[in-house]
């Protein structure tokens, strides 16, 4: 992990080092020239990232729609979209589903499984380690839509999972219909664990072996060593990874959309799916934008926490 604890960039070196007296005069122009390379990125970010965010906030206060009279000119309707949303059982359910999805697939699933895999890899056989690592990473590298198809086939009533259950004499349920959230959570764990595994493998490699060994000599059990040595020593990576996986999972769309379409009904419509459905299926752009704004705010809060964790690297 030390690779990114950046050495502070060397102090500014000035071409033809100006004398101290001239420094103040040339200051503004020089700063401008030096920050000029930032301009293309600033323009792109302002036009294509900042503008949508700002218009999202504004649009959530209008009745804009794709069709009908509201499609021409949207009128300002204040907080109505939000009042509407918070009295809508579908929306309240969607918040709950998003929380369940985040906790199930990101916080518990990917992080615990990723950490577990990283630890098992340490003591595992070299060949098994290689094969399992490749399989886990392949699921992650595949394009999202392909992973979604594979997961769909796996959980479908005629799919692999139920066939295996039938082999051992069980009748599996129609996962996508009866337990859509469980299916998409497991699918997202399958799809995303590699990232956490890679991060934790790197973190565990930084835990000095002699600390572990001397603890073992003193008679500390495996569980105790995990709790009092390994976990505290990798705490920083755990925090960052929890934030990153939460942010990635918060915007998961494709895997859910392909597997269940948010259904049956709205039983697996997390917030990104619901925003899409409101905006494009029911042409309620205003409502969709309000959901998008709420998602952006939640993302912003997580981002700020994440930045605070990374602060030492910026300063």
């Amino acid at each position: 992990m030390s690779s990114t604890v950046l050495a502070k960039p060397s102090p500014p070196v000035e071409p033809g080092a100006p004398k101290a007296g001239r420094k103040r005069k040339g200051g503004a122009g020089r700063t401008l020239a030096r920050s000029a390379p930032l301009i293309p990125s600033m323009v792109l970010l302002a036009v294509f990232l900042l503008a949508p965010v700002v218009s999202s906030f504004y649009g959530s206060f209008t009745d804009s729609a794709l069709t009908g009279s509201a499609a021409k000119g949207a009128t300002f309707i204040g907080l109505q979209n939000y009042f509407h949303l918070f009295s809508d059982p579908d929306f309240l359910q969607s918040i709950w589903l998003t929380v369940v999805f985040l906790i199930g697939s990101a916080i518990i699933g990917q992080n615990v499984l990723g950490y577990g895999l990283a630890m098992l890899m340490q003591s595992g056989n070299r060949i098994i380690r290689g094969v399992v690592g490749t399989l886990v990473v392949t699921s992650w590298v595949l394009p999202e839509i392909v992973a979604a198809f594979a997961a769909y086939a796996f959980f479908h009533a005629d799919g692999t999972l139920d066939s295996i259950l039938r082999l051992v004499g069980l009748t599996g349920p129609n996962w996508l219909y009866s337990f859509p959230m469980l299916a998409v959570i497991l699918a997202n764990i399958w799809r995303g664990t590699a990232f956490s595994m890679l991060v934790y493998t790197a973190a565990l490699a930084d835990v000095p072996e002699d600390v572990q060994e001397s603890a073992a000599m003193d008679g500390a059990s495996g569980v105790k060593r995990l709790r009092y040595i390994t976990l505290p020593m990798t705490r920083r990576s755990i925090n960052t990874n929890l934030m990153l996986t939460t942010l990635q999972t918060l915007s998961a769309f494709t895997i859910i959309y392909v597997m269940t379409g948010g259904g049956p009904g709205t039983k697996s419509s997390t917030l990104p799916i619901l925003a899409y459905q409101e905006a494009f299926k029911f042409s309620e752009i205003g409502l969709g934008t309000a959901i998008a704004t709420i998602l952006l705010l939640v993302g912003a809060v997580f981002s700020v926490i994440y930045i605070r964790a990374l602060r030492p690297e910026v300063d």
Binding site: Y276, A292, V304
Partner: peptide, 18 residues
């Protein structure tokens, strides 16, 4: 850093309008 955390999926509705 803040931008890396923004959920792009959430932006697609306003982006579509723009």
């Amino acid at each position: 850093l803040f931008g890396t955390g923004l959920p792009v999926t959430a932006m697609m509705v306003p982006v579509y309008s723009l």
